[in-house]
Write a protein that binds this DNA or RNA. Structure first.
Length: 633
RNA sequence: GCCGGCGUAGCUCAAUCGGCAGAGCAACCGCCUUGUAAGCGGUAGGUUGCGGGUUCAAAUCCCGCCGCUGGCUCCA
């Protein structure tokens, strides 16, 4: 018998196999750890047959794609377990996510933590049975029949563009799925269900709330354990915890979402603001300040009344209606309108550290990261249409300078386009969005597009930073606005002597001072670089007889502009060092008989330990140099 | 706002089945006079988030509210 062969091109080698062999058969010989494959560029299951010559790359769970498959398959196993334990549960969607997966279920009763344990046990059984994942293609009509009564699956099937859909099954469990999947459930080695949460179907709060179970999954138990350990470590960096331990800020039941800054938090905050002012002055910004409470009429004119009312607080003064500002722009408009402007003044950059109040839903408040009042490092820039691109590029440079060069943050950029409830014509939106896009492209920034997430008055570029758990928070934003100038009838006198309409940019760099401080706390795990450290030096008296000398030294150092405090408590030196270490004080100076006699300083660094002896001048210079560098440990 | 979990001393956490609210750290007082990550002893600290209910008896069980928290939605 003449068996026909096909050529399989693998990275670095080429083999011939009988036609209609499966990829699994090839993998058995050549890639024992494979769980899936890339066949002519497309991800497929190992059960896929080879009917013609093909380029093949095998995938293991060590690769990002393999890991995603592992997690996705684990989600299916979880759904199977849930179905066994809760036969009435209807399935929604169950994708792989960072570190794991989730699956949404419609169940009459929410899952309890005990249920999670039972589900985990059921999953173990399914894994032990090593059920193969089977793929099947069928037309939509048949699929709808198969999933009859599964309203979420029906909705998904109806929306799929192709006439045929694929389903996967393992054992008795069948699910609509594009795949690919692991060869069998036995390939799952390490997973854990971590929590349950309510989640609206398709993220729409007007639709039913489903129960979402989150899990994590890794190729090995070791990696899973490592991940769980990392989470524990991350919790130690949580700004809410460090804010209390380092006495930076507090939030009270009497003011949910309204943070209180303590003396040390204020030092940090003021230093950050000083830095901000310096950098903005260098770049031609003028600073203004506008009131927190302004007439409701103004907010009607700006469009906030129609588009932002739900987030605003209102009040009355002498029976007249006022609103507490949720944004700074209308105030800046009034400043602009104070007098007539010439094109020669442009771009006119009016900055404002503006305290805004917004009614955020109670369920979203989170330490300093999401609050109900915060200070925006705002600026409104008025300019000619021809200046848009340069101006936006200048702001991108400033953001990059502060985020990356000064603080060493990794950040993500998003372009947000027109939302549903917005003002203005399509044409204006189109123009503004294109301008932002072009600025990003000429700066060669990588960015993702966030459809429908713009402000109600214009599209925006957002800069996102990560917290200790990898959650991202929007910080900087650049918003282009053709509408507000229209609404407030802003004009400038052009070269031609005629009046024209200026273009405006709203922008923040840090975003919210509060949120940015939250990010800083987590980024440095409380060990702020010297220039930001609320206390830079702590003097530790060895015995009580050294107190007086220590206090004199404190005066001397603080006279040199160093933030210093003294510990003259009746405690051992080891105790004082431990205390200063835990407070993340960068420098400790031990003062005993030797130092009093010699006039030298015994310096300890919070990371490098004992630095030995140096003179006061030497130490002051060291501190000044390190502060100027803005470098961390 | 919605779904789940949680709320005990300033902080971290105990308190068996519903049976006298407890420990460590911090604070305060005293002893020690201290040399590079926690010296010793003592004192004080609580309407168990708030309000109802069940019970002979509630931190514990039930209901409502407040707050925190993980998500969803929303957003700097």
């Amino acid at each position: 018998m003449n068996m026909s062969m096909v050529k399989v091109m693998l990275p670095g080698e080429q083999v011939q196999v009988p036609q209609d062999s499966t990829l699994a058969q090839v993998a058995e010989q050549l890639a024992p750890g494979a769980v899936a494959a890339r066949l002519n560029g497309e991800l497929v299951d190992l059960t896929h047959p080879l009917d013609q010559d093909a380029k093949v790359e095998f995938i293991t769970v060590a690769s990002p794609e393999g890991l995603e498959i592992l997690r996705h398959s684990t989600a299916h196993v979880m759904a199977q377990a849930v179905r066994r334990l809760f036969p009435g549960a209807r399935l929604a969607i169950g994708p792989a996510i960072e570190n794991g997966f989730y699956y949404d279920f419609d169940v009459p009763e929410p899952f309890s933590p005990d249920d999670l344990t039972r589900i985990e046990e059921e999953m173990e059984g399914i894994i032990k049975a090593d059920l193969p994942f089977k793929r099947q293609e069928l037309d939509k009509g048949k699929a709808l029949g198969l999933f009859a009564g599964e309203e979420y699956k029906e909705e998904l099937i109806e929306e799929l563009p192709d006439e045929s859909v694929t389903i996967y099954s393992q054992g008795e469990f069948v699910d609509l799925c594009r795949g690919p999947h692991l060869p069998g459930t036995g390939h799952i080695k390490a997973f854990k269900l971590v929590n349950v949460a309510g989640a609206y179907w398709r993220g729409d709060s007007s639709r039913p709330m489903l129960q979402r179970i989150y899990g994590v999954a890794f190729p090995t138990q070791e990696e899973l354990a490592e991940h769980l350990y990392m989470l524990e470590e991350a919790a130690k960096r949580d700004h809410r915890r460090l804010g209390r331990e380092l006495d930076l800020f507090s939030i009270h039941e009497e003011g949910p979402g309204f943070p209180f800054f303590h003396p040390k938090g204020m030092v940090l905050r003021n230093l950050l603001e000083d830095f901000w002012r310096e950098e903005h002055a260098k770049r031609g910004y003028k600073e203004i300040q506008t009131p927190i409470i302004l007439s409701e009429q103004l907010w009607r004119q700006s469009g906030h009344w129609d588009h932002y009312q739900e987030n605003m607080y209102f009040t009355k003064i002498d029976d007249a209606a006022y609103a507490i500002k949720p944004m700074n722009c209308p105030g800046a408009m009034l400043v602009y309108k104070e007098r007539l402007h010439s094109y020669r003044e442009f771009p006119l950059r009016l900055a404002e550290m503006g305290l805004v109040h917004r009614h955020e839903l109670s369920g979203v408040l989170h330490g300093l990261m999401r609050v109900r009042c915060f200070t925006q490092d705002d600026a409104h820039i008025f300019m000619l249409p021809s200046q848009i691109k340069d101006e936006i590029m200048g702001i991108i440079d400033l953001v990059d300078y502060i985020y990356r060069q000064v603080f060493g943050f990794e950040y993500r950029v998003e372009l947000s386009t027109r939302p549903e409830n917005s003002m203005g014509s399509d044409e204006v939106w189109e123009r503004a969005t294109t301008a932002l896009q072009e600025a990003l492209k000429s700066r060669q920034m990588e960015f993702t597009v966030n459809e429908g997430d713009g402000a109600f008055y214009g599209p925006k570029i957002d800069f996102h930073l990560r917290d200790c758990l990898g959650r991202t928070w929007q910080c900087g934003t650049i918003q282009l606005d053709f509408l507000m100038p229209e609404r407030f009838d802003l004009v400038y006198v052009g070269e031609d002597g005629e009046r024209h309409r200026p273009v405006m940019i709203h922008r923040v760099v840090l975003g919210s001072i509060e949120r940015f401080i939250g990010i800083l706390i987590e980024h440095y795990a409380g060990a702020f670089p010297l220039w930001l450290a609320p206390v830079q030096v702590r003097l530790l008296a060895v015995g009580e007889r050294h107190s007086e000398y220590v206090l004199g030294l404190e005066k001397k150092l603080s006279g040199c502009g160093i933030r210093v405090e003294s510990d003259v408590r009746s405690e051992k030196v080891g105790y004082k060092i431990r205390d200063a270490q835990m407070q993340q004080v960068p420098y400790m100076i031990v003062v005993g008989d030797k130092e009093v006699e010699s006039g030298m300083l015994s310096v300890r660094h919070r990371r490098q330990g004992d630095l030995g002896v140096m003179s006061v001048d030497e130490f002051v210079q060291r501190v000044e140099k390190e502060s100027r560098s803005k470098q961390g440990d």
